[in-house]
Computed example of a mutant assay.
Amino acid sequence: MVFSTRDLTPRIATEINSDKATLLSGEYAGKLRELLEQRGVLVFPKIMFNDEEQVAFTNTLGNFAPEMAGEIIYKVTLDTKANKLADYLKGSLYWHIDGTMNDVPILASLLSMKTLPSTGGGDTEFANTYAAYDDLPEEEKAQIDALRVMHSAWNTLYYYDPEPSIETLRGMMRIGDRELPLVWKHRSGRKSLVIGATARHVVDMDFKKSAELLVQLRDWATKPQFVYRHVWSVGDLVIWDNTGTMHRATPYDPKSGRMLHRTKLAGEEAFA
C-alpha cells in the first residue's frame, strides 16, 4: 500500500502519490475528502486510470453525479466532432464555478488527461476562494458578507462571443438565472467567495459599483498566492473542490486534439 502527500503551494493544491489498488480500495477516501476541503485541489500524477477505474475511484469518494444527459464519462474538449456540445465549453476558458444555476452545485469534478494538445496550451488553473475570503481585511468582509449576486449562464457568452446572434443568446438564457450569496457560509463554519464569469451584478447596487466590486474580488481571488496552475501530462488525474475554488483552462487550439475525461461527485450542500 502506497500513500503519501506533498503540498504544491502554501495555500492550494496537494499532490497524492499512491498506486491504483490503494486508491480503489477506498482506504484513504476519508483522508482525501478532508484534504480536498482543506487544499481545494488534489493532483494524482500519471495514475493512468482508465474510464472504469475513474468511475470506481469517484464512487469511493461520495455519490456519483451523472451528466445532464445521463453520461457517466464526459469528454472535455473544444472539438465538436468529439463532443457535439463542445461550444458550450468555450466559457471554461474564464474563471468560474460549476453549477451556479443549480440549487446544489456539484461537490467536485475529477479530470483525467487522455490526449495533450498538439499545439500547446490547455493547462488548468485553480483559485482557492476559501483562502481568498479568509485573507480579505475584516472591514471588507463586513461590507460584502450580506450581499447577493445575480448569476446568469448567458453572462458567460459575452466573454467569448461579444456579438451573439439572438438565437444563441436566447438559447443560453434558457439555462436560467439564479440569485446567490456573494459569500457562501458553509455548514463547516468556513466562508468562500461565489464569483466568476456567471456573476452578472450585485443585487440592489449601482451598476458601475457592482461591476467594480465583482472585478475587484475576481482579481483578488486570482492573485498568485491563491492559484495553482496544473501543467498536464497524459494519465494525470486532478480533483477540485467545486464549492471552494474557481477554475479555468488556459487557451488552446480547438483542433489540437486536447481531450480529458470527467466524472463528478454529487453536491451535498446548497448555496447559503
Rank of each mutant, 00 (worst) to 15 (best):
S4D: 15
D7V: 00
T9L: 08
P10G: 10
A13I: 01
I16C: 07
S18T: 14
K20T: 04
T22Q: 10
L24P: 04
L24M: 12
G26E: 08
G26Y: 08
E27N: 12
R33Y: 03
E34R: 12
E34A: 11
L35G: 06
E37F: 13
R39H: 09
F44R: 07
M48Q: 14
M48A: 14
M48C: 14
F49G: 05
F49M: 12
E52F: 01
Q54Y: 05
Q54L: 11
N59F: 01
T60E: 12
L61S: 08
A65E: 15
M68I: 13
I73H: 05
V76L: 10
V76C: 06
D79Y: 07
D79T: 07
D79C: 08
T80W: 00
T80R: 14
A82K: 15
N83F: 06
K84S: 15
L85Y: 11
Y94Q: 04
Y94M: 04
W95R: 05
H96R: 06
I97M: 12
I97K: 02
I97W: 00
M101N: 15
M101E: 12
D103F: 05
D103M: 09
P105F: 03
L110S: 12
S112P: 02
S112T: 11
S112F: 01
P117A: 12
T119G: 09
T124S: 09
T124D: 04
N128M: 06
Y130R: 10
A131H: 02
A132K: 03
A132L: 07
D135H: 05
L136S: 11
L136A: 12
P137Q: 01
E138K: 11
E140Y: 05
A142W: 00
Q143M: 10
I144Y: 07
L147A: 07
R148W: 09
M150G: 00
S152W: 00
S152T: 10
S152N: 06
W154N: 08
N155Y: 05
Y159I: 00
Y160P: 00
P162M: 09
P164D: 08
P164F: 03
T168E: 12
L169S: 07
R170S: 14
M173A: 03
R174I: 00
R174T: 01
I175W: 03
G176P: 04
R178W: 03
P181W: 04
W184K: 14
W184T: 05
K185S: 11
R187N: 11
S188E: 09
R190Q: 13
K191Y: 05
S192V: 09
V194F: 01
V194L: 08
I195Q: 02
R200I: 00
H201Q: 10
H201T: 03
M205N: 03
M205A: 04
M205L: 13
M205E: 02
F207S: 11
K208L: 06
K209D: 12
S210Y: 00
A211N: 10
E212T: 12
V215H: 05
Q216S: 14
Q216C: 07
L217V: 10
D219K: 11
A221G: 06
Q225F: 01
F226C: 04
Y228G: 04
V231L: 11
S233V: 02
S233T: 13
S233H: 15
V234Y: 07
V238R: 03
W240R: 03
D241R: 01
D241W: 03
T243A: 07
T245N: 00
M246D: 01
H247I: 13
R248C: 14
A249D: 09
P254R: 09
G257I: 11
R258D: 10
L260R: 03
H261E: 08
L265H: 07
A266Y: 05
E268D: 15
A270T: 11
